[in-house]
């Protein structure tokens, strides 16, 4: 939902970032306002996953230029955990398996870290169980997954549901979902997308990083951005995703060549 007067949640200006001294992001500009759903599309290696990790604060990625303000605050001054507590959420493309750490305990600790920051009361074990059971419905998840170790032995679809469950618990202001659709069959995709749609409000925003149009059949974006060579090459509405689906990314090469990048 586009409202020009809505609060600016994320303001990315000329962002440059490197991995192991290799520049990946080369001047990303993007503004995200409350209520909006943005899709960032692009080929493998275009920098879209890097963008998501830089925003969440992954230590392997080094910011070499530009600024990101989150609700007016310099995002890069904040540790990854502080970003999360303030409402920045990254849904992982490959959620990490953590043997021996109970999923329920992990979810409780992280939920309480966010609640504390919001001035809400911490939930004890019993209160949290009720709370989490309500949220399970968002992604139609079997409560048995709470008793297992974090993501250990989960299928691809179960891991992604677990990510959206975390999103439901943490109630982020800006949710960045990195290729949440990858590895999902159509039923799992619908459930995950349904969860994301249920959680979208006029006060928060969603940034979908995706390779394929099919996720956008389930979650309707307000804006579609095409990334290439570390920058946003073109921005449009939903029709841009449909155009990509039909024409592929070949025009990207031509445009980059015309700019002397490729």
């Amino acid at each position: 939902m586009i409202r020009p007067d809505a609060q600016l949640l994320l303001d990315i200006q000329d962002l440059h970032a490197s991995v192991e001294d290799k520049p990946i992001l080369k001047g990303v500009n993007l503004q995200v306002r409350a209520g909006e759903v943005h899709a960032v599309m692009g080929r493998n290696g275009s920098g879209k996953s890097t963008l998501s990790k830089v925003l969440a604060g992954h230590p392997a990625y080094r910011v070499t230029g530009g600024t990101v303000r989150y609700r007016g605050q310099d995002l890069f001054e904040l540790e990854p955990e502080e970003r999360a507590r303030l409402g920045v959420f990254l849904g992982f493309q490959y959620p990490v398996e953590i043997p021996g750490v109970s999923n329920l305990e992990f979810l409780r600790v992280s939920t309480n870290a966010r609640r504390e920051k919001q001035g809400e009361e911490e939930l004890d074990t019993f209160a949290f169980e009720d709370h989490v059971h309500d949220k399970l419905k968002v992604v139609q998840m079997d409560p048995a997954f709470l008793e297992r170790s974090v993501n250990e032995g989960f299928s691809g679809g179960e891991k992604k549901r677990n990510e959206i469950l975390q999103m439901a618990l943490l109630e982020p202001v800006v949710a960045i979902l990195d290729e949440t659709d990858s590895g999902l069959d159509i039923d799992a995709l619908r459930i995950v997308a349904g969860g994301v749609n249920q959680l979208a409000t006029e006060d928060n925003a969603t940034l979908l990083i995706t390779h394929y149009q099919r996720l956008l059949d389930e979650i309707t974006p307000d804006y579609v951005h095409v990334m290439a060579a570390g920058r946003i090459l073109r921005t449009g509405g939903r029709e841009l995703a449909l155009e990509l689906e039909q024409t592929g990314y070949d025009w990207v090469d031509q445009e980059l060549a015309a700019q002397g990048v490729a």
């Binding site: 230590p59 392997a60 540790e79 955990e81 999360a84 990254l90 953590i98 600790v109 870290a113 943490l170």
Partner: peptide
Amino acid sequence: QDDELFYLQSRGIAAADA
């Protein structure tokens, strides 16, 4: 593993607690 630590941190859990 950095990835395990980062995953927990990205859920609001401080590095030492993670």
